[in-house]
Design a binder for these strands. Structure first.
Lengths: 196, 196
DNA sequence: CGGGAATAGTGACATAAGTCACAGGTATCA
DNA sequence: TGATACCTGTGACTTATGTCACTATTCCCG
């Protein structure tokens, strides 16, 4: 587990043993059962989480209590309500386990300390943030240019494992369509309809 | 103009005169006429741009040649095809002036040099990337949870000046709806329809 | 193990949005 | 300044998606 974190860092920045141990000392580990909340809307956001194993969903809940999945977070992903985390405000999003999960986490204080003391980690987090931004931008492009069906296929293409691990209802929520519409995209009935 | 850049940096990180001059030496300035392309799909991406004045649009063009507006970039905004810029690959997006614009720009080499030599600027870019990520995530949430009309009102709420500066056709493209649909959202006809 | 909750498919219908076509107005630039 | 391209609204129609309801099946957790 410690190795997994190190490998993850070293994919972007090389670290000596000492450096890694120093970095590692800023993190704590946590396990969480399926359906547990790591972040709850309205509460303070103490940590950014790194997923060692398991699966999380980041969700936005509207005034009517309907949930939309902003993001899934699987192995090797970082997740949090970043806006609330960095600013110290209350969460607008919630982070919930879809599977029993093993996590590393870092507090804002430790994060800032780490960035102050390790130029390498500052660079690491910069690259992560850049990639996060690029990833979100691509998702925006998929909303601008693709149909629900194409967005679904695109998603399954990139993350085939999701289909096994996540109910379709949740995939629909991530894609921004109703579960019924997603269901019908691949029902035999819709194919018959089209040929008439 | 130089002051504008400094003020922008100092909103996040304080700089001495020497520090700022050092930073400034990594940038070059450029002016560009309305409708000029700063980045063209398929070509290398040399720079990240900072908008001193004017207005840009970042666009994605699909196989049929239809454009979608990924982002507007107004005063004090940074913009580029970041994926292509950081990786040195060809642009998947284009960046075009909607108005005559005055810009600063920085090359990848200068950017990396600057980050190596200035911890402060590394922190600056980290914060910019974080905010970029958060902003894109909020746009995703608007696609997941809002109707076209609500997305439009949300946009005008945040950037009222856009309404004066950008034709509705372009706003529609940014919102992911057809120009006709956007037009009808506020036509008297649709209000009449609703009352019947 | 058993029962309640979650998941998934689907029919029937309502609503939102897209597409194509046309016309009048406005901006732009050679 | 005048021709041209762009912008905007709108009618008529098509298509995509949402909503509600019901059922069958599967999955958990106590």
């Amino acid at each position: 587990m410690k190795t997994k974190l190190r490998t993850h860092f070293e994919a972007l920045v090389p670290l000596t043993d000492d450096e890694f141990n120093f970095v590692h000392s800023h993190f704590s580990s946590q396990t969480a059962k399926r359906s547990t909340y790591l972040i709850k809307e309205g509460e303070p956001v103490k940590y950014v989480y790194f997923v060692i194993s398991g699966l999380l969903k980041l969700i936005y809940t509207n005034e009517s209590g309907e949930e939309s999945i902003v993001s899934f977070a699987m192995e090797d992903w970082w997740e949090s309500d970043y806006m609330a985390f960095y600013s110290g405000s209350k969460a607008h999003l919630s982070l919930q386990c879809l599977e029993d999960s093993v996590l590393y986490r870092i507090s804002l204080e430790d994060y800032q300390n780490l960035c102050d003391k390790s130029q390498k980690m500052l660079r690491f987090f910069l690259q992560k943030a850049q990639r996060g931004h690029i990833g979100s931008q691509q998702r925006i492009i998929s909303f601008l240019t693709l149909s629900a069906k194409d967005r679904y296929e695109h998603l399954i293409d990139r993350y085939p494992a999701l289909l096994q691990r996540v109910p379709k209802t949740q995939l629909a929520s991530y894609l921004g369509v109703s579960r019924e519409t997603l269901s019908r995209l691949y029902s035999s009935k819709s194919y018959l309809d089209r040929t008439t």
